[in-house]
Nucleic acid binder design. Sequence first.
RNA 1: GUGGCUGUAGUUCAGUCGGCUAGAAUGCCAGAUUGUGGCUCUGGAGGUCGUGGGUUCAAGUCCCAUCAGCCACCCCA
Length: 436
Amino acid sequence: MAINAPEGTYDMLSDRKLFWEQFKATARSVFGRYGYVSVETPVIERTELFVRGIGEATDVVSKEMFTAISGANLTKLLAGEKLASKSRLSLRPEGTAGVVRACVQHDLVPQGAPPAKLMYAGQMFRAERPQHGRQREFNQVGIECLGADDPTIDAEGIIMLMRFFAEVGIPRESMTLLVNSMGCEACRPAYREAVLSYMRSHEDALCATCKERMEMNPLRAFDCKNEACARIMEDAPKISDYLCEECAEHYGRVKELLELAGISFVEDSRLVRGLDYYTRTVFEVQVAGSDKAQNAIGGGGRYDKLAEEVGGRPTPGFGFALGFERCANVLEDVGHVFPEARSCQVFVASVADEVRTDAFALTQLLRDAGIQAEEDHQGRSLKSQFKLADKLRAELVVILGPDELREGQVRIRNMHTHEEELIAKDVVAGEIANRL
RNA sequence: GUGGCUGUAGUUCAGUCGGCUAGAAUGCCAGAUUGUGGCUCUGGAGGUCGUGGGUUCAAGUCCCAUCAGCCACCCCA
């Protein structure tokens, strides 16, 4: 019985893999200009980290995490025994918690230090039913900046995200940047109360799920796609009216800096991120004109309380994540030409079996000279070897024939111009390198 | 987790009311006089009909289960 890849996962085959590598390289290049350096944290973390960091009540933690259980512990668990805290592991559903954990663990932001600017790229896992733009295993690129609460961090972060999208080829006009401020621990409670009492006064018209989340997290009602709820929430209290002086100033400065940089954005007071750790700035980049449900290709914000939440000293933070697969979907929609993995610059063709050993030796020689070279491994006819070279999109074919070899020469054919020339065998590597 | 649609050569798809050896296109392979690719022509190979049960004289076709895909809800990048 053939076994295929699990639900919601996919094999990244050569062309896709090449694009992913280029995508990451572009990220390193763009983010590197802003001082961000690459790190890699474990794909598994202690479940506790996500519960405390992201929030127990969030959907991501309460129903979308993959829990990892090592061999013997599974038996324990099935027998009804409890696992030691250190054995409770989960596949990461997002990247921020792990990076912040690493910052705290290695004290990357000691007293008086400049902010730590880190980027990462890798798989994330969420146990959801897959659909367009949503996989159970997917790839994200993200950044985290810890140790500075200055609005310039937020602004430059958003700017560089937009620069990155532009650089990978997503047209600016197809993207909408939404920004909002969620306030801080000083001003959010009052706002939360205001929304709650507003919702209570309209409780009858709200959908069932919104009624449910009223007590748990009323702000989430802003995300509801139910039309009646959306209409009601339209007139709900606005966070902007409740921000404390510091938060209002911070938010105002972020917007000012974005405008200064010529980044257009839309203020959206309904934008509330689903992860508990966000404070102050939140933002999301949506793709316009998409009839698909998942239209957010990147998002993030400020999380000034997260480091404390995972046991560190108070350290302000800012970060965002962007979805690789979602970006690829958008690029497909706009007709982007994706790179194709190529494995052969030069093909070494044998005219007769007696020269196969020479062909083998020459192929190795070319590879040692740094040239991507390939030969026939299936005893194909010369004609078929040319067809193969054509399919591999070789630029040059070296033709080894008994006649030429007797003269110490080989023939080189340019596959684009069809021109052929004779070259002395002992200088062939150099001559070929010159022609590539 | 809930719901809808789908699963037939490598790929995209036909396959009637359940009925003979499951087809096409494309791709692949081999030829079209001497040692040369793309175009054309000719020929060839390639199918556990997702998987496992069931109904039937007979199942790609009907039923059940299961796996996977697509899409939506929920939620998120």
